[in-house]
Simulated scan of single mutants.
Amino acid sequence: MVDDNAAFLDNLQELLGDAGYEVRGASSCRSAREHAKDGFDVALVDLRLPDGDGTALAAELKNGSPDSEVVLLTGFATLETAVAAVRAGACAYLMKPCAPQELLLTLEQAMRQVRLHGEKRELARRAQMTEKLAAVGTMTAGLSHEIRNPLNAAALQLSVLERRVRKLPDVQQGPLLEPLLLVRDEIRRLDHILEDFLQFARPREFRPGSVDVRELVRRVVDLLSGQAEARRVALEKAPREEPLPPVAGEEERLRQVLINLCLNALEATPAGGKVTVSAGHEGGRVWLTVDDAGPGVPPEVRDRIFEPFFTTKAQGSGLGLSIVHAIVTQHGGTLEVGTAPGGGARFILQLPVATGEPVAVRRA
């Protein structure tokens, strides 16, 4: 809200605040530019400001935030100012003083436009992801056998070679085993990458059942405790007194999701840090969070972190989190990334509670 009339600004801030809007006030173009850096949905801008023209400011704000909307306010409406408002990209033009209902209606229309911008952006992102998925499917179908066969042959010959080397005297084994084991690990890594491609391109049929979330968390934490200890990172499940209902899904695939999220958290957390897995439920959904003590996920990366082939790691296919996101979506759930209380990354998984049968509740 940009207006140099302090009384008018206070009145509108109170009115819009009571209507549920979060309002930031500015009395000049300079102040408005500073507020705009933090982002906004709708800007209400007076035409006459002490340090500039409201129409020029409206165009500047619109150019800086194309998905946001601008509403111009004026007490001196003319045909010229109306035309200038349209050219500046304003979605509406109100006369001061305006009736509260007219202002609220105009704001709701502007917010509807903002939501439409967001939906269009999401549709464009999904279309781009669909194209990538199609490319993965085509490539995988043609290359899977061509790659898997020599990988299997190489792994077999390495196993034979390893058995022969281990029959040698201990003093001779060391220099031979070190490069051999390195090659074996690299073959395994290639095999895992190929498996990611296959799974992402050809997802299995979904057959949901009832999954005990408490047991799921316990198994994953127990399974990864050795890797956490090797990294000198504490992997813990947060204590919980309230009961948790089962979720609808496939236990094996949800375990894969949680393992992937925990492994990423362990990799991001420095020695001496802690990774915490928490669970709870609200309404008809159960939530799981994985918090790490790493550097966190930068805001500019969060919108892309689930895209196929996108990765911030030096190695990897960039499909791990994409597969996780696809599994969660297939389960009717959501997966988001945020900031953990300690400043690291927090992945928030939400899944629907199992329905169609009596809900057996156990204490976690």
Rank of each mutant, 00 (worst) to 15 (best):
Ala6Cys: 10
Leu12Gly: 13
Leu12Pro: 11
Leu16Asp: 09
Asp18Pro: 06
Ala19Thr: 08
Ala19Arg: 11
Arg24Val: 15
Val45Cys: 03
Val45Tyr: 02
Arg48Glu: 06
Gly52Leu: 00
Thr55Met: 08
Ala59Asn: 04
Leu61Glu: 02
Gly64Phe: 00
Val71Thr: 03
Leu72Met: 10
Gly75Val: 02
Ala77Gly: 09
Ala82Glu: 15
Ala85Gly: 13
Val86Ala: 10
Arg87Lys: 15
Gly89Ile: 05
Cys98Ala: 15
Glu102Pro: 07
Leu103Ser: 10
Leu104Tyr: 06
Ala110Phe: 00
Val114Met: 00
His117Tyr: 02
His117Cys: 03
Gly118His: 06
Arg125Ser: 01
Ala127Arg: 01
Gln128Asp: 03
Gln128Lys: 02
Ala134Met: 03
Ala135Glu: 11
Gly137Arg: 12
Asn152Gln: 15
Ala155Gln: 13
Ser159Ile: 05
Pro169Ile: 00
Gln173Pro: 06
Gly174Phe: 08
Gly174Ser: 14
Leu180Trp: 00
Leu181Ile: 09
Arg184Gly: 02
Ile187His: 12
His192Thr: 09
Phe200Cys: 01
Arg202Ala: 11
Pro203Val: 00
Pro208Lys: 01
Val217Glu: 04
Val217Asn: 01
Leu223Tyr: 07
Gln227Gly: 15
Glu229Asp: 12
Lys237Pro: 11
Lys237Tyr: 10
Pro239Asp: 11
Arg240Asp: 12
Glu242Asp: 15
Pro245Trp: 11
Pro246Lys: 04
Arg253Phe: 13
Leu254Pro: 08
Arg255Lys: 04
Gln256Arg: 06
Gln256Ala: 12
Ile259Lys: 03
Ile259Tyr: 01
Leu261Phe: 05
Leu263Glu: 15
Asn264Trp: 07
Ala268Asp: 12
Pro270Phe: 05
Pro270Asn: 11
Lys274His: 10
Ala279Ser: 14
Glu282Thr: 15
Arg285Glu: 14
Leu288Asn: 09
Val297Leu: 10
Val297Met: 10
Pro298Phe: 09
Glu300Tyr: 06
Arg302Ser: 14
Phe306Glu: 05
Phe310Gly: 10
Gly333Cys: 09
Leu335Lys: 07
Thr339Phe: 03
Ala340Leu: 11
Arg346Cys: 14
Phe347Lys: 04
Arg362Met: 08
